[in-house]
Computed example of a mutant assay.
Amino acid sequence: MARGISLNRRTFLISTSGAAAGVAATGLAGTGAHAQDGALPEYAAWKDPDALIVHTDRTLETRREAIGAPPITPARELFVRNNLPTPPLSATDDPDVWEIAFEGVASPATMTLGELKRYGVTSTPAVLQCSGNGRAFFDHEASGTQWSVGAAGNVVWTGVPLARVVEAMGGAAAEARFLTGTGGEDLPPGIDPLTILVERSVPIEALDDALLAYEMNGEPLPIAHGGPVRLVVPGYFGVNNVKYVRRIALTPAESEAKIQRTSYRIRPVGVEGDPSQPSMWTMTVKSWITAPLHEPSSGAVVIQGVAMGGASALSSVEVSTDGGETWQAAELTGPDMGRFAWRPFALVTTLEPGRYTVASRATNADGDEQPRDFDPNERGYGHNGWDAHAVELTVS
């Protein structure tokens, strides 16, 4: 348990310190004034600064204790991860004029968001999670933001069912194998667009659940989270949920953009990325403890956390107070909002004074159980090992 205990102490420091101290605890130098002084960037100035760790201008992490155990993550507390600078704030002044081009269908067309709304509306609760959530738990210090557990949240997306739009355009081209979304960020001149373009492809089967989301938690989608409209692919890691989407294409092959071909690939440490490696597509079963994180009094203690099934519905959660030697079934306390959403859980147990390593372990409807450990990979993606996500408690 030494590895898990060491990393969990690090997580505790990150989640309980001030924003600037949290950055220092992860060994990050910060990139830009916002990261250095702990202030929120302008596009996210409306968020709760006490709930967030400011890693950089483009990476804001929800503190573990701020996650708590709510069924829905408030927008003010939700993490932010941007690959490129956001469009101007004015892009959301009149969302209905935003245009999206549709290709790889029988009748290609470009439509405004206002026109797309005529094809219907649906709401889907779903976890949004960065591929690197849990990167801080790897020993090899993978490059990138050292997320612990706070690059994830559960939100309600509202928008246009993409499959309905494709059907209205005559259906997908016969050779289509992938759903490809292209972001609308401004690209600097003089650089090969494919090296920085945010364009992601996922298997075309994802079309059945995908939507063009223009609201989050019942409010207009803000710039910080991809407004005025983003592609949402429930059950898939965040990078596939393309922000500021300008183009939807049903394509025979994956995008040629670097972010698709070589980035976001699971590969051994020290190995370069290439298209033959597994892509960061569907999420996996995962859970973690959110309370208590400080020193509870002995006696009855309520242990809480959140759990998700990944691309499958969550089935059950167990909690251990002895580092995984024994397990007890936890109660799923939040409503069942569907297979893509997370659920809070709780276990009431009696703890005597002493030191405890508290972990959670989730299982989904497909029978996939959260593993104890997760093999390292070059970029530190996809960590769902319960050992590293555990917390240490001193009960007084």
Rank of each mutant, 00 (worst) to 15 (best):
7 L>H: 07
15 S>C: 08
22 G>L: 02
35 A>T: 00
38 G>F: 00
40 L>C: 11
41 P>Q: 07
44 A>E: 05
65 E>I: 14
71 P>E: 05
80 V>T: 07
82 N>L: 15
89 L>N: 09
106 A>N: 12
123 S>F: 04
124 T>H: 05
129 Q>C: 14
141 E>S: 14
144 G>I: 01
148 S>R: 00
149 V>F: 07
156 V>Y: 08
167 E>N: 09
168 A>H: 08
179 L>C: 03
191 I>K: 08
195 T>G: 04
205 E>A: 15
207 L>M: 04
210 A>G: 05
210 A>V: 02
211 L>W: 05
220 P>G: 01
228 P>A: 02
253 A>T: 15
257 A>E: 02
261 R>T: 10
261 R>A: 05
263 S>C: 13
274 D>H: 15
275 P>Q: 13
276 S>M: 07
278 P>C: 05
282 T>E: 12
283 M>C: 11
286 K>E: 15
292 P>L: 08
300 A>E: 10
301 V>L: 09
301 V>G: 09
303 I>G: 02
308 M>E: 15
321 T>Q: 05
323 G>F: 09
327 W>K: 08
327 W>T: 02
331 E>T: 14
359 A>F: 03
368 D>K: 11
371 P>T: 00
373 D>S: 11
374 F>A: 09
385 G>Q: 01
392 E>P: 10
395 V>A: 04
